[in-house]
């Protein structure tokens, strides 16, 4: 039972990090109608910035700040230089141009940093594990990540729901021409939204990179998971992204843990673990297919 709760926490943690990725993707799609494959590169940039600054200064916190700043800056530059030309293009052009950006960012980073993964150390104040009520031992840093993820989620909902920028964003999602007529500087709004999404991706990259590793190509598996998240949640919906991310995070974690033991009930152990692991790797895609059959527009999607 304790084990199950610990695994739920792990699922929650990976789900919240996915949410940080998916939120930016879904905002950019909702407001600008753009599909951005290079979002994973921004995640990678955040992680590398954190690793670089943390190694130079010895402070993880400066590294984290640098990751957010670097990803936001990279996002803003890319938006102004490239993405801006793509808003009126069809999705194929967007896919290809952002695919080209992935090649440029990945190979460029490899050029600068080489191929060997970098490893970040958890800051001393958050290292080790704590005992939670009920006697669960849990990594303090992972707990902090869960807290940070929840805070960002709340902040994002407040930003979209309560501020003037949020009003503009929501107006932009509903009707792009209208907000231009209202005298909003659309160019600036788009750059801002894009940079915000990039900053969230960069932050996720730094946090996840600290637990795992920082390397070229780290953003791509996460990007595809984030796509699954927003397809499940409904494209353009922040609420959908949150629900989708938690669903995917929990399905993935629990599938990996539970499926092998389920198969163990009626199969030989070695075969069960290997079949279970194979199916677990497909679990989230099966979840996505099921959601699509029931609701082709995603759980909270406005349009299909």
């Amino acid at each position: 039972m304790l084990l199950l709760i610990e695994q739920l926490l792990n699922g929650l943690q990976s789900g919240l990090m996915l949410f940080l990725m998916a939120a930016g993707l879904t905002l950019v799609f909702g407001v600008m109608g753009l599909i951005n494959l290079a979002h994973g590169s921004l995640y990678m940039i955040g992680a590398f910035a954190c690793a670089g600054v943390a190694a130079a200064t010895g402070s993880f916190w400066l590294g984290l700040a640098a990751s957010i700043a670097a990803a936001a800056a990279a996002g803003a530059i890319v938006e102004v230089a490239v993405i801006r030309r793509l808003y009126r293009r069809d999705h194929l052009d967007q896919v290809l141009a952002t695919f080209a950006l992935i090649l440029i960012f990945s190979e460029g980073t490899r050029w600068l940093y080489g191929s060997f993964p970098l490893y970040l150390n958890v800051p001393p104040s958050l290292s080790g594990s704590v005992t939670l009520p009920g006697g669960i031992q849990y990594s303090l840093f992972r707990l902090a990540i869960i807290g940070a993820g929840l805070l960002v989620a709340v902040g994002l909902f407040l930003l979209i729901g309560k501020t003037r920028i949020g009003v503009q964003v929501r107006a932009g999602e509903a009707d792009r021409e209208m907000i231009a007529a209202l005298g909003v500087d659309i160019g600036r709004l788009y750059t801002l939204v894009f940079a915000l999404g990039a900053a969230l991706a960069g932050m996720a990259g730094a946090l996840v990179g600290t637990i795992q590793s920082v390397q070229v190509g780290m953003g791509e598996p996460v990007l595809i998971l984030a796509f699954v998240v927003i397809v499940i949640g409904g494209i353009g919906s922040i609420k959908g992204a949150l629900v989708g991310a938690l669903l995917v995070g929990l399905t993935d974690t629990m599938g990996r843990v539970l499926l092998p033991s389920i198969f163990d009930l009626f199969m030989e152990t070695s075969a069960a673990t290997s079949v279970g692991a194979a199916l677990a790797s497909m679990a989230i895609y099966i979840l996505m297919a099921l959601v699509l059959i029931v609701k082709p527009g995603g759980l909270f999607g406005a349009r299909a």
Binding site: H91, I224, V228, L292, I293, G297, G298
Partner: peptide, 16 residues
């Protein structure tokens, strides 16, 4: 069952 950007992402996800 879907179109546009959904279609792109879904075909990608099934491929994965």
């Amino acid at each position: 069952r879907t179109t546009g950007v959904y279609f792109i992402m879904i075909t990608l996800a099934f491929g994965q």
